[in-house]
Design a binder for these strands. Sequence first.
DNA 1: CTGTTAGCGCATTCAC
DNA 2: GTGAATGCGCTAACAG
Lengths: 346, 346
Amino acid sequence: MVRGVRKARLADVAARAGVSRTTASYILNGRSAEMRISADAVDRVRSAVVDLGYRPNRTARSLRTARTGTVGLVSDSVASGHFASRMLTGASAAARESDLLLLVGETDGDPLVERLLVDQMLDQGVDGIVYATLRHREVSVPLALAQSRAVLLNCVDPASGLPAVVPDEVGGGRSAADLVARCAGPVVVVGDEAEQGSYAGAMRLAGLEERLGELGRTIADVVRCDWTVPAARDAVSCWWTPAARDGALVCLNDRVAMGAYQALAAHGAVVPDDVAVVSFDGSDLAGWLTPTLTSVALPFVALGARAVEVLLAPPGSHAPVTRLAMPVVRGGSVPAAAAVTPGSAG
Amino acid sequence: MVRGVRKARLADVAARAGVSRTTASYILNGRSAEMRISADAVDRVRSAVVDLGYRPNRTARSLRTARTGTVGLVSDSVASGHFASRMLTGASAAARESDLLLLVGETDGDPLVERLLVDQMLDQGVDGIVYATLRHREVSVPLALAQSRAVLLNCVDPASGLPAVVPDEVGGGRSAADLVARCAGPVVVVGDEAEQGSYAGAMRLAGLEERLGELGRTIADVVRCDWTVPAARDAVSCWWTPAARDGALVCLNDRVAMGAYQALAAHGAVVPDDVAVVSFDGSDLAGWLTPTLTSVALPFVALGARAVEVLLAPPGSHAPVTRLAMPVVRGGSVPAAAAVTPGSAG
DNA sequence: CTGTTAGCGCATTCAC
DNA sequence: GTGAATGCGCTAACAG
């Protein structure tokens, strides 16, 4: 424990103010009115606090109150992820908002480390734990977690009954449909929807299909490939046919879209004039491409913040699963004429 | 403070094992040999621990020992950064290695929030604080930090005298020089070296120039532009001349290189046949480009880990500034023939 | 080798 | 309105 100068204790403050520790404690905890403490005593204590540079010892307070003012965030590898780390930004901000400190730990997917980390945080006395994953998927949390105050972030665990905060992938798929429903040519999906055992692909595809159906359209084709730039580039390049002109490519994430861009360029197809491209994630990459990519964004900051909020709310005051909307980040890869007003009947 | 089932205390363990709390404490703190406690007592205590599911109360221990087993990491916006968040990964791993928990907080560059956060962490009783920045730059840390156990990460504060851990940007510049020193055409730098008041640009440029000089070469030109894709694309596109063929573009970061790629493609110049490209950062983006980009990498994970190690080491046992090498991540953007053996006389 | 005792700094119940 | 006394759970002198 690091301390710059000798720290003053509450007793020192009380002594200097000429009151008892109890009185000083009440005043500092905002109960001076309730306890009807004299204004004079309040003033003396307050100035003693300033004079002595008194800071309450949170450890001692925690021992007494059984609350530490900290929440934990354990993840597989959120901080390593390209931009999923923004969940940390959101969680950190929300924690600060409630005057809490955030304990983070990465397990790199190791179940052993995971248990150790959760136990350590519990021992440390965190007031709650957010369990986050890089990919939106199903998990099976350690028993110790399931028995404590916890919230799942970007994942769900049906067995545990823990509340979860996730992106609304189906709604995102529907938004993508709205963006391309009026294009003249075929709507083609790029990317394997079963990628990495993640929920994202299948749900995005489901939403897309559902909404396209409502608008009287269908998915003409699915170009399956890994969610990486080279895989998408090669797959799109092989698949490309002039019949695809005036259609739209719905890429399952931004890296896939980048690969698609490269393939289209190689074939001399111009985005968005010859073919529209939309994708999912809304990562920084979308803004780096030329033309900029229209992408249905993962609201990582909001997800992280909301997870902490749900954690702090009274248990049961939230739906088991909170789905956060995926906002459309508009780029130049989709002609306005291809879009339909969201929610319209088409 | 969250607790699944009623927690057993050390006293319960001692009672069940038929020993005193002291004895139990010694055993659990690995001092049974030193205290010459009977093997029988040790066994009884150990099984009592298991039976009762006893976990030591870290808060109580902290109150007594004045150490909390936590370190803080406060940053401007490291978690928001594209891949700088990996400093967190490194720090988290190093903390775990020493059985410490990591408290993180982002200030978003707000000096007020910064002070609040540092104070809160100090109140919380962290054993030390890592102060990190997204960009490698000079900072002026809050007074409270300067007076406590702290280490700077990716920044320096000459006034504070705090130890710092930073990437060796000059060495990185030298590595870049080695990669392109033998190219037939001119060596041209892309990017404004004074970008964002950061140290990175100037130091990379200095290292590049220094090493090129040793090898009998010079920087032919500097194409100044912001470190963004569109700015670099436009700048390189305007500047491009057939005279640049067979030369090399040294881009000050990967996004600049991406812009350069786009400009070169527009002019029909092929990488690496017509022109070599190297850059700095070693971000994921480097692997997404075609051909993949050879980049001198920022060792973010190692930086984060080292910062925690320096924090935990006895004060004064490290140089004031620890510079970590920037490893070259080889891609396909530089012909082997253009390179020289690092460290050779050329 | 083991038990007794005394705090760590704070919140809180109960007398005054 | 205020102060004395108690205990959160643990560690570490000190005595036996």
